[in-house]
Each structure stands twice: as C-alpha cells, then as structure tokens.
Design a binder for these strands. Structure first.
Lengths: 194, 194
DNA sequence: AAAAATATTGAACATGTGTTCAATAAAAAT
DNA sequence: ATTTTTATTGAACACATGTTCAATATTTTT
C-alpha cells in the first residue's frame, strides 16, 4: 500500500503556509488556527498530524540538518585521518549556518524551545565524536569520551551563539580565522605539543 | 514612596503557587489560569505583573543565578591571578547546578525556551571573560575576545548538557576529574606549554 | 483620620486550544 | 468500475488567552 495522497497534500499545505507566515512574524506568535486558515486545512486535521506549530517547523530543521550531515559526508580528505581536519569540518558548519541564516535566526531565538538547539547539538556532536574516536590518543586515557565530545561540540556552538548575538555581522572568512586562532591556542587538535 | 504592599503580596502569591505546581507537573503544562486559581489572584491582575508563566519562573532563575554569582565572588585565591584558577571556578558551577538540580532539570528541558539557557550562559560568560581578560597573553593577539570567551563558556555548558542528559548520574567528584582531564589536554589555562 | 492615589477585582469579549464524533469525501484495493 | 478503507470535515465542547473597563478595596500621603 502506498502513502496516502491526502496526507501528503495536507502536510505540504501546512508547511507551505508556515513558510509564508515565518516571513511575516515571529514563529512563537503563529497560532495553529491561523496556520490552518491560511493552509485551508481543518484544525482537527492539523492535530491528526502535528502536536503544535513547532511540529511543522521541525520538519524544516530536519531538512536543514540533513543537509549539514550531507556536507559533512563529502569526501574531502577523508582518507587522511589527520587531526587538523577538524578545522575544515567546523568551517563547513559556518557556511551551512550562513546559508540557512533565516532559520538559524529563529532557532537561536530567546523564545524558541531548546529542542532545535539540541537537534543541532546532536548532529554536530556526531561529527565531533567521529573525529575524536579516530584520535584515540594516549593523553586521552581516563577521559570519558562523552564529556569530552559534548565539551568540544558545545564550544563550537558557542561560536555560533556569539555570531547570532552580533547578528551574523562577522564574515565567514573572519570567523574561520577566529576559529583557527582559538583552536591553535586551545585545542587537542594541533600538532607540535604533547 | 514605598513599594506597594499589594504588589508584593500578589507577586509572592503567584511565585509560591508556581513552586507548588512545578513539583506536580511540567512547567510548560502550567497555565496562567490555574496558577491564578491556586494563588487566588485575578487573572487580569496577573497580566499587570507578568507576561506569562515563564515571567514568574524567571524570578527563580534570577535568584539562582545571583547565588552562582555570589559563590563566584567568594575570595578564595583571588589575589593570585594564576590561570589555573579557572578550574575551581568551573567546579563551583557543578556544585551550584547540583544544589539547584530541580531547577536545572527544568531549564535544560527540550520544551523550555532558550531564554533560561542564555541567562546562565551570560552569567558564566561574565566569569569567563574576567578570567580571560586577566590573562592577556601573547598567543592571544589577533583573537576577538568575544568569540574566545563564548567558545570557552559554552564548552563548560556542554559538560552541563551532558550531565543533564545522563540525568546527573555522574558524581561531582568524577565531573571535576573529567573537567581537569579535558582542560589538561585541551586548554589555554594550563602551564607548561606556550 | 480623611483624602488621594492606585492595585485588585469581576465581568465580558473575541479568539485560540485540544478533543470528540458522525457525515462525507477521496484515495487505495479489488 | 465497484467496493473497501481511511483522511478530512464541520460542529460542538470545555477550557485558556489576553485585553478592556467601571466598581471596589487597599495602601500611601497628607
């Protein structure tokens, strides 16, 4: 049996309507009722598919996060397991965020639930974990990897928060440079020491 | 002119009622209406003081954050500007979070708005900034301090997120040890290098 | 103690929420 | 093409939201 056409149509209408509304007003001021009015969907039908407006928005974040994952999986120097590759990985994140800036402006907003932050966190964390697992260095014995990975991941997100708070005024080039500087004074991912 | 007694009474009633309700059910399921019923406050009066239920809860986070700030300002080896003091500072945060665990379980919840996270972020960030400003090291030239500080701050919050996600099962001692290990492999705050 | 100032109340209103249900429409299966 | 399945609809429900306003109660000022 195939996926019911009516379901697809309903969900697409709602998503399309949300896309229009978030260009007009803050996400947290959009009601289920007005979304349904615009989408020409019965409000009862809405609740058959989503719990609330965030349920509809989450679909977009999932698309966005999938794109980030895809860009991470691009084979650049994947054969080369050198630790310094953390930089190009993280720099990809900056391009990604800039690319979807309209959405990230929403995601990092004061009034928006933590769930979106956590979705981004989990995604970046999985990259970070892969990188750190590959290292498996002597000086990391005794460290619980989960804490190290979350520490590193959230550090990167800290840069994104700062970027958000200065309204994305820093250029990507400058941001890259800052990251490299920070990592160079402050990272297990550099050579020359230890 | 003094602060009106009626205002104090109203706000205290509401805060007291909220304290009761958050022990029974998730914060985001508490309505203005039921809070007012329990507090014996007219719903119209509520809106003279707060915008929503989060407005009431925020008061508690402000108290909590004030306590964190106070604990930070305790003079331990404040005369000694050594960089390694970052550790005791951050370790204080762990004690603080454990102390107010019931609240932080709410603050880090999926459904709760980012505002509480940012309030914590800003507080920890101000400690971190002080520490980093004091360092002013050669290898930090060219770094925009704002990015470095946000990076370091959010890294610490990353440990708290991890702690939250494993339901605070890691002991404070173990957490301290993990932090020291992470900082020792991964920090500008250690001696011996540079 | 009386007067002035102001916070709280109750009632009302339009709108939103989340749920239920039988009737209907649309799609999938035969 | 007909039958079977199921998604959507409209109507209704109790309750929540956010606002307004005149009446009342409480506090502060004099």
């Amino acid at each position: 049996m195939k996926q019911d056409l009516r379901v697809i149509k309903t969900q697409e209408s709602l998503r399309h309507a949300l896309l229009i509304l978030i260009k007009e007003k803050p996400l947290d001021s959009i009601t289920v009722a007005e979304l349904c009015r615009l989408a020409n969907i019965n409000r009862g039908t809405f609740y058959l598919h989503y719990k609330d407006v965030h349920g509809v928005f989450k679909h977009y974040l999932e698309v966005i996060v999938k794109d980030l994952r895809k860009s991470y999986e691009e084979p650049y120097y994947k054969t080369n397991f050198k630790i310094e590759n953390i930089k190009p990985d993280m720099i990809k994140i900056f391009h990604h965020v800039k690319n979807y800036q309209e959405f990230y402006q929403i995601i990092f907003d004061q009034h928006i639930p933590m769930m979106y932050y956590y979705l981004l966190f989990d995604t970046v964390r999985s990259f970070m974990k892969e990188t750190i697992d590959r290292m498996n260095q002597e000086r990391m014995k005794n460290v619980q990897v989960d804490y190290l990975v979350s520490y590193q991941t959230n550090a990167i997100l800290g840069i994104l928060i700062e970027w958000h708070q200065n309204e994305y005024s820093t250029s990507i080039d400058e941001l890259n440079q800052q990251l490299i500087l920070i990592l160079s004074i402050n990272s297990p991912f550099r050579k020359g020491i230890q």
